[in-house]
Design a protein around this nucleic acid. Structure first.
Lengths: 224, 224, 224, 224
DNA sequence: AATGAATGAGCTTTCATTCAT
DNA sequence: TATGAATGAAAGCTCATTCAT
């Protein structure tokens, strides 16, 4: 239907239904976002099951009925939320690659950025949440982490392809290489964080060190 | 893999219920396992919240009351299940290291073994299951994975220390190196499997290839 | 007799649900009374424990959820019921004292009134009901009976004090005297009714005769 | 297996089934009493509903099955207990009447005895308990307080009849008179205790004073 | 005959969903 | 169109009763 981050320069009538009559039921993108914002706060704090529609109702400041006009049911609402938040993983990770002064620098920046982001408390929670409902909504984790062109891997892969073309790197399987680099970057952090073996976010210095070693290892193998 | 709570001093006949008297309430290890088996099927398929005690009752083939004689409540049942299934992750991976004909061979065997195991359907499900209840029972994921998530790491680390001592490898931070190798081994598989981006278990050939590249990368960097 | 929780400042239309908007959740006094009426039938017939919320649901003609919007839980519902029905004991017994043409006549009227009321089927049931939950909710019997069980006693006592002052009676301990008179009035009835030894309400003639003898006895002892 | 308050002088065959074969099922009076003793402790402490058969089982030191051999179900067990305990009210009240040195003294002794007994913590509890289950087992309160020839009223009535015959008293309706006297004796105590308005047992001095006034009142009216 | 492990109906309570207003 | 009071299926758990041992 309509999904999501509308820029405020969108046509005005939608918001107040002032000039051209009311927004049709379940079509007002502002209200839709308002609902998703409330849902996000609830789902992130409590998880899928523990978040009640009543709570979401209160948090979003809309009525029960309205939510059900915009979303078929709780699962749909959750799915829509995950869809809206999917970009969460990328953020500006691809800027880092471009801003690096060398391949090593680019990779270092990228690795730190992606690790910091992916192992942050909030993203960690989100990942566990989608994994928790995996058996009932298997498509949802996929949608969240998605292998789509926006994903971190794809971004890195495109960069690697470019560097291979320019002769800076020698890589056969760039997709695998991209995955390898990301895993090396998070080697010390991701699983520990995921399974609760590292209660607090990793200090930046630790991340930087791990990434640095990863970069060295990566370049020693794939460097031209 | 199965480390059920048999008291070794128990008379054997009790287990099959053959000769004298009945097993005391909540003490029959056969029934206990029967319940845990049913619970396992439910929890793994549906997750903690979505699995109902009624369903578990049916699946285990015992009555509600019986379950509550063996386990205080749903959380206790879940915890007991996780405790029984812990170690599921380790398996016999450490044999592989010893049986290798060279460092490269050992690492290759180890990497394949651990990847095959950790990305198998059943272990994948188990991991998602404990991650799903993380907010409610944060200790349980940790308990499941052992004192260090993937104590496989400890095993590998010991091996690496040995090889460093013998001069076969040059590694500064062996713990990090162990983590790096494991991540490289699963670079193509773990996250994809976890988040549903690879519906079926990875073919052995694919795993072998990824591990092989990982081994090469690892040895190029850490090889003496 | 019925002192329901109508807020007097409520707009009247709400009560009949006629003109504007709906009554807010858990606020409709008509529905509240409807629930309490159903609960009353159940609790009085079955006692606290034996009355199930399902039964009350059916009897009240509302859904389970609705009851739980109006009342936190079963105990709260019971407490609310007792609160509503309190005062049931007092009725208008004090009018009788004032309307008598003589002390003897006043006492006779009062004795008959109070006995008739307190040994009626409905009050009997109510008393047994609160006595049945005494161990679980000791305050509630007290609450039901008023600050002093049978505050009828206080009313009578005031009357006796007055008559002592006017020289019509000679009483040392007016509180005891009041209790004595009430016990004499119900001597033939209360315990028999309470413990089921008199299945039907006592005929008025019997009550009148017992009270008359009580009055005679009382005046012979306390008369000036 | 058998653990309990057997008097050692009991015939031996009951216990081990040695000489004359075993006691037939549900027929051993010692075991029956043992069960009732356990049930009494549970019911008196917790009330009918809250007392679980498991608890009674433990308290009585017999197995679940055994209880169900002796008693059809929980209600039957309760009924049997009440039947056994019915005499509780009388105790030795009738001795008091005989030991008095005068009518006044006899009545005083009797009044104090019966009031002390009937308003004691344990009897109070018992009365509330039978009243609590009245609607479901209406016959049980009757059975407990029973209007049978053993009841306090009947005993007192017989005494009064005797004194009327001897010319010491002038009473028309001796049953009513008996009830009146008992109510006067407990005028200050019974209802207050029943409804929780007097948390502790009444001091003996208070009881004596109330009874004394009751005796005076009674004799002034019924004295020859 | 006595046992006590097992049963499952039934308990109170919650909450996703509906629909009259 | 938006509302939120009302619904009732389903949850976790208890316990009187049964019956294989």
């Amino acid at each position: 239907m309509m999904n999501a981050p509308h820029k405020p320069d969108e046509i005005d009538e939608n918001e107040t239904g002032s000039s051209k009559g009311r927004t049709p039921a379940g079509q007002d993108p502002v209200k839709r976002d308002q609902i998703l914002d409330g849902a996000k706060r609830c789902f992130m704090t409590l998880g899928f099951e523990a978040a009640s529609m009543n709570e979401i109702t209160k948090e979003a400041g809309v009525s029960k009925g309205t939510i059900y006009v915009y979303f078929e049911n709780k699962e749909e609402l959750f799915t829509a939320l995950v869809d809206r938040e999917r970009g969460i993983l990328l953020d500006n990770a691809h800027h880092e690659l471009e801003e690096g002064t060398s391949v090593a620098d680019s990779l270092q920046r990228f690795g730190v950025s992606i690790t910091t982001h992916l192992t942050s408390d909030k993203v960690m929670k989100a990942q566990r949440m989608v994994l928790g409902v995996y058996e009932r909504m298997p498509q949802i984790a996929l949608r969240f982490m998605g292998p789509d062109p926006f994903s971190a891997i794809a971004i890195l892969q495109r960069y690697l392809v470019e560097k291979v073309a320019s002769g800076a790197l020698q890589i056969d399987d760039t997709e695998l290489a991209a995955r390898q680099f990301i895993e090396l970057s998070m080697a010390n952090t991701f699983k520990r964080r995921l399974f609760g073996n590292m209660p607090k976010e990793a200090p930046r210095a630790d991340i930087e060190r791990t990434v640095a070693i990863g970069v060295a290892m990566f370049l020693k193998f794939y460097g031209a």
